[in-house]
């Protein structure tokens, strides 16, 4: 029973936090410096790891599927398989998972320590809503950065697949055939569906991170626990949302 209460309590506080944060949207112009700072933290600092992981995911996907497809004489479809998988699923999901691990954990740690060391209370007594200056700039930044990260993840994943196809002898699919088959079946809708997923995952990850941080009570031990909790909740949220968005899109 307690688990159900905590689950709905969390959902309720997430919705409340989002509502309160977006209610301050008219003030976003005055917070451009904070948004730019968060764009840097969310986008630029996450970019290297997104690039490296996506490249190897694309490569592994090409390697695994190349060997299997060869058995069926369908290796010319490797480009389609890698292209569709990266655009519709792996690009946005990987970008979101890395966002949760790298940025979500940092957001939770920062807000949790601000909460524990009464900086959030200080803001409240100064009549400055924490949702306005701590949550809203991060939400706007993730909404701006997440599609860019997802596009880069998708494109780098395609490239990783293409390089493996060309240079791994047992696959032996050249770039022309690879990209020809990628273009043949991939639609703009597939790419936009992936970007929509990435946007929703990103907002979800930042909301969970902010909510968990701002609800932290106790001391240093609880800050650590909050970070773990935020990352675990984000990963679950990403995969649950992924299922429902995919179901809605297909």
């Amino acid at each position: 029973m307690t688990i159900f209460i905590r689950f709905f309590d969390n959902i309720g506080s997430l919705v409340l936090l989002a509502t309160r944060a977006f209610s301050h949207l008219p003030s976003i112009g005055r917070q451009s410096a904070r948004v730019v700072e968060q764009c840097y933290l969310i986008g630029y600092t996450t970019l290297p790891i997104v690039t490296i992981l996506s490249f190897f995911i694309g490569g592994v996907l090409a390697l695994q599927s190349g060997i299997s497809l060869q058995d069926f004489g369908a290796r010319q479809f490797i480009g389609t398989l890698v292209g569709e998988s990266m655009a519709r699923e792996l690009g946005p999901v990987m970008a979101a998972i890395l966002l949760a691990g790298r940025v979500g954990s940092a957001i939770t740690a920062e807000l949790a320590s601000m909460k524990v060391y009464q900086e959030v209370d200080a803001l409240v007594t100064m009549n400055i809503r924490p949702e306005r200056i701590l949550v809203l700039p991060r939400l706007i930044a993730v909404m701006l950065m997440m599609p860019i990260l997802a596009i880069i993840a998708v494109v780098v994943g395609w490239l990783g697949g293409a390089i493996v196809c060309k240079y791994v002898g047992m696959i032996g699919v050249d770039w022309d055939m690879y990209f020809q088959s990628l273009k043949q079946f991939l639609t703009v809708g597939d790419v936009f569906g992936g970007l929509l997923k990435a946007e929703i995952f990103g907002v979800g990850v930042v909301l969970v991170a902010c909510n968990t941080g701002l609800r932290t009570r106790g001391g240093p031990r609880e800050i650590g626990l909050s970070v773990t909790q935020a990352v675990v909740q984000s990963l679950i949220l990403i995969l649950v949302l992924d299922y429902f968005i995919t179901k809605a899109l297909v």
């Binding site: 601000m114 060391y117 009464q118 900086e119 200080a122 007594t125 100064m126 009549n127 809503r129």
Partner: peptide, 21 residues
């Protein structure tokens, strides 16, 4: 209430200072 804080300027000096690090 937020409306009260809009009308009355209230300042709290925390034991730890609670400065923004």
């Amino acid at each position: 209430l937020e409306e009260t804080r809009d009308k009355v300027a209230l300042a709290l000096v925390f034991q730890s200072g609670a400065l923004f690090n």
